[in-house]
Amino acid sequence: MHDLTPITALGGTSQRIDTVGDVCLTEMPDVALASVAARRGKEARCRAALKPLLNADAPPPGRTTANAPFESIWTGPDQWMLLADFTTHEDIAAHLKSHLADTASVTEQTDAWVCFDLTGPRITAVLELLCTIDLTWFETGDAIRTSIHHLGCFVICTETGQSVRILGPRASAGSLHHAITTAMASAL
């Protein structure tokens, strides 16, 4: 076991939590991520290999799956992001590669992203100041990659109107956090 102490994307040793009114923004450092892109011509085999990992069919465009052990987001044609608990799946990329073998390219993405959960009954008022997503139709299981404060982010609806998960570029975690908390103060 190595002896290097990690820091969160916001530079802390523990997750940062911000609350405005009844909406809460929580930094989620314990999310392991890997991208899975089907190899050309092996798309069907890749999907078949993904199925037991996801306990579901690989999601179609704009959708996610939320079963253990790996949650998933559609990220592009024949391409998904898989999510797992960091504490148990820090080796997510190696683990997936061993299952998917030559059907997919697997790339560790854990620390390419910062993950925030935004929860509360009025998150819609916050989100509409941040991104172009049509929130009237944004339901549990939907996921959209869009721009927030000029940063390409994934926004995943984990509970309609109540909870979203936002993945943004890790190096800009501070800017993204500032944009979201500013919108919270403005909207709530």
Binding site: S35, R40, G41, S105, Q109, T110, D111, A112, W113, R170
Partner: peptide, 15 residues
């Protein structure tokens, strides 16, 4: 378009 190539940016994933 027919080549078997996948690209992904990992700039921020690695220090």
């Amino acid at each position: 378009p027919d080549a078997d190539v996948q690209l992904i940016s990992t700039t921020e994933a690695w220090a």
